[in-house]
Nucleic acid binder design. Structure first.
Lengths: 156, 156
DNA sequence: ATCGATGCAAAGCGTTTGCAGGGGT
DNA sequence: ACCCCTGCAAACGCTTTGCATCGAT
């Protein structure tokens, strides 16, 4: 309420984390990447590149869509963000903090995070026989992707 | 071994099924759609539109890529085929006979079917608490999508 | 005979790339 | 000072569309 703040971006706590992750990947910290990351970190559903562009444009009016794409790539390469391509239409981006599942709203196309951890034994619980079949057929399973489908009422 | 057969497509048993499904959707039975369906029904992994085009071209040299796309749409609308958009790159098409899961090869991008039925209680088994949380938050879950990731050794 | 389907070419959308100039280290 | 990143515009890959003709009913 009473905390004063300025126009120019002051260096959020997240920026420290971001800078580290970028440097670890051999990439530079820039205003554009910070803005993209800030927006993604605060987003409730998972925005498209256009969404990010529209939002970040308000802070950095001269940013280009190409830069947004490149920034998103940089964040993906820094392992701060994942790219979601499970859909028709444009890709969506997910600022990840630990593994989680997605809830995909069939009405609006929005994607929400679900606070459930990855369960390495899911497949075993689901169908032990399938695990056997896969092993025999020469399929080596390294992970899975679970997406829930449904309708999200217009909240959050 | 000894069964004689001719050059011209004789009307496969599948064609009867196909014709029915198309008509139920108010669509017409055509040579092009039959060829696309035949190919998809016999494919082991899930082909892209280009894959279908290349294959079907050998029977119908004058078919166009646009027609392949339209035929695939018609098959999807007839509920004989599903469109898989879970990937980077082009969509893939899946000739479905009952629900199943997919195995997605991370090396080659191929997608294989897994002979496991849909389990409506999967989520309940996986994490009963999550089901509760979702209900409270106003998310109505109508289904799920499970995709296994890994490496398929070069067989099948 | 009707009306949908085909085939061609051109447009469309989301994304990537080439390059000159600007900014981070 | 170096080299990466930015921003612009043009290219790209996949898919869809407009339209005249063909073909299924």
């Amino acid at each position: 309420m009473s905390a004063p703040h300025q126009e120019a971006a002051p260096l959020f706590p997240n920026d420290v984390e971001l800078r580290g992750a970028l440097e670890k990947a051999g990439l530079r910290f820039t205003r554009q990447r910070a803005a993209v990351y800030q927006f993604l970190a605060g987003a409730t559903a998972h925005p498209t590149a256009e969404d990010v562009f529209a939002a970040v444009r308000q802070q950095l009016p001269k940013i280009s869509l190409a830069t947004v794409y490149k920034a998103l790539d940089a964040l993906v390469e820094s392992a701060l963000v994942t790219k979601i391509t499970h859909l028709d239409g444009p890709c969506r981006y997910d600022c990840l903090g630990g593994a989680h599942y997605h809830f995909h709203c069939l009405n609006t196309g929005r994607i929400f995070d679900l606070p459930t951890a990855y369960d390495p034994d899911l497949l075993q619980k689901l169908d032990p026989q399938l695990v056997e079949t896969l092993r025999r057929r020469g399929f080596q399973v390294t992970g899975y992707r679970l997406e829930l489908l449904g309708v999200a009422f217009p909240e959050t």
